[in-house]
Write a protein that binds this DNA or RNA. Sequence first.
DNA 1: CGGGATCCAAGTGTGGATCCAC
DNA 2: GTGGATCCACACTTGGATCCCG
Lengths: 226, 226
Amino acid sequence: MPEPRRVLPPRSEAELLARADALAGRTLGDVAVEHGLAVPANTRRGKGWTGTVIEHALGANAGSRPEPDFRLISVELKTIPVGPDRRPLESTYVCTVPLAGDAAPDWRDSNVRRKLARVLWMPFEGDRAITLPERRIGAPLLWSPSPGEELALASDWETLMDRVMLGRVEEISAREGECLQIRPKAANAASRRLAVGASGAREPTLPRGFYLRASFTAAILERYYA
Amino acid sequence: MPEPRRVLPPRSEAELLARADALAGRTLGDVAVEHGLAVPANTRRGKGWTGTVIEHALGANAGSRPEPDFRLISVELKTIPVGPDRRPLESTYVCTVPLAGDAAPDWRDSNVRRKLARVLWMPFEGDRAITLPERRIGAPLLWSPSPGEELALASDWETLMDRVMLGRVEEISAREGECLQIRPKAANAASRRLAVGASGAREPTLPRGFYLRASFTAAILERYYA
DNA sequence: CGGGATCCAAGTGTGGATCCAC
DNA sequence: GTGGATCCACACTTGGATCCCG
């Protein structure tokens, strides 16, 4: 196993895209070995592995919290599993839902908007018949929401967050939201985090996250490849 | 190495004291081995080791946060290193200082008071010439503050917390406080936690803890042995 | 199919305290 | 001697996401 190679943060979008282009066509296993990262036995163990591998390869400032993966150039990295038709196989996690009421009351100050302002999408083969290390990386796509996309996101966010801030988070189903949904984001169903309750007081509830529906990310990729 | 023995929580002060008495005279190494705990190379590495060993041996519900070590009977455990004269060699950490302004404004609701309401003191040989595993455990002492002790603690607490809540924590020195002092409690001097600042806004500062001066705990032990 | 449940790694915070230069 | 600095273990949180049953 070679030394884990340290990759410096990219200083421009052009530099980032050049690196990302150079990954296209390579396998995850190949890239992982180059960076000294062990390969998990299967996908069940190692759900976040692909994201970690690409982060290392592109020089993301990993581990920081509300900041973008590429802090210097304010770009967020998202790996996305796609099928042979290049359509996403999964929804995409965005960030946690602020449940405690200290949330921004406005879309323009929201973490969702900040995270999605500029995203480098890295598609990769998500077919479960292919083992993790054999999966190939696809062509990258640097994206910002179109005016229409941002309107749709803002609309979903406002509808959902209104209910959260009124203490109605327990009543929110993943069926709601045209492009943005709220779903559990936890180690297991027993996890608890304080949230605004129906009475207005804080009470424990299951932690949740914002996710982009696969239909939404499919449209993003399609627009690009068209 | 034997299996780490699981000790059930004591159900009464009498049961706790009986167990503590049974430890008196034994060495830390002896007790540690009995509970499957590894012995650190030296005291620099392993500062909290003595406390952990005694917790295991007495059946403390370790790891919980604002609760006493022995939750069922509301007793806190404190190990305390003493010299040949049985006087404490170190101050005693009590709890973290609430810096963010969400603190109790009153002594009676304070964590310091709750922690010290009922304490099992376990003295042990703290002489640095004796290796950790060779150090012997002393006679236990179950203590609650006398009216005079509580007055002194409350007075120090109120003086110190007034300044914290006014955003003056940076100005507090460990020289202040007759029996209770405020000192850094952090991994290193670069650690930061939000506190009420001089302007009233939250700003990062070094995390701090409440400590009992050695002169105060010396008086407690002395009162008992007299 | 997809909504609700879950999995891992790494960083951070807390509880246990003692170290050591001045 | 002691005020300010530091050390370890482990629980918890966060960021990375995919699993899988009805």
